[in-house]
């Protein structure tokens, strides 16, 4: 199958082979599932969301801001620094442009001086 093969600098990637493998795995899962209990009857509880063994309620749900708490605690020094830079003040936006343009010009000037 040469169609869809993406040639990289030192290898290749065949998405169709990946999809074929994925479909194969799905078929195996469905076959295994077919060996399950035949007398199972779907109940109204089938689609309920569980959280730590209990049916999740509005109060017990995990909010977006609760997720990855440990990561943010561990990265606190980084986030303190990075959020301080994001001031939302337009003057600072312009200042960062000036900093980048000046740095670029300085490096280029030094390069030109060395080159000349």
């Amino acid at each position: 199958m040469t169609l869809a093969i993406l040639k990289t600098a030192s290898g290749f990637w065949n998405p169709l082979a990946f999809v074929a493998f994925f479909i194969g795995v799905c078929i195996i899962i469905f076959i295994l599932r077919a060996f399950g209990k035949k007398d199972f009857k779907p109940s109204k509880y089938k689609a309920d969301v569980f959280f730590s063994g209990n049916i999740a309620s509005e109060a017990s749900r995990v909010k977006a801001s609760d997720l990855f708490w440990g990561f943010f605690e561990a990265m606190k020094p980084y986030y303190n620094l990075i959020t301080k830079i994001h001031t939302g003040i337009i003057n600072d936006y312009a200042l960062w442009y000036v900093i980048v343009a000046s740095l670029l010009l300085t490096v280029l000037t030094l390069g030109v001086l060395q080159w000349a």
Binding site: V49, A56, S57, E58, R61, V62, K63, A64, L67, F68
Partner: peptide
Amino acid sequence: KVFCSAFLGPEL
């Protein structure tokens, strides 16, 4: 995070 919080979980 977006998927879990917006699309999954109990209905509000």
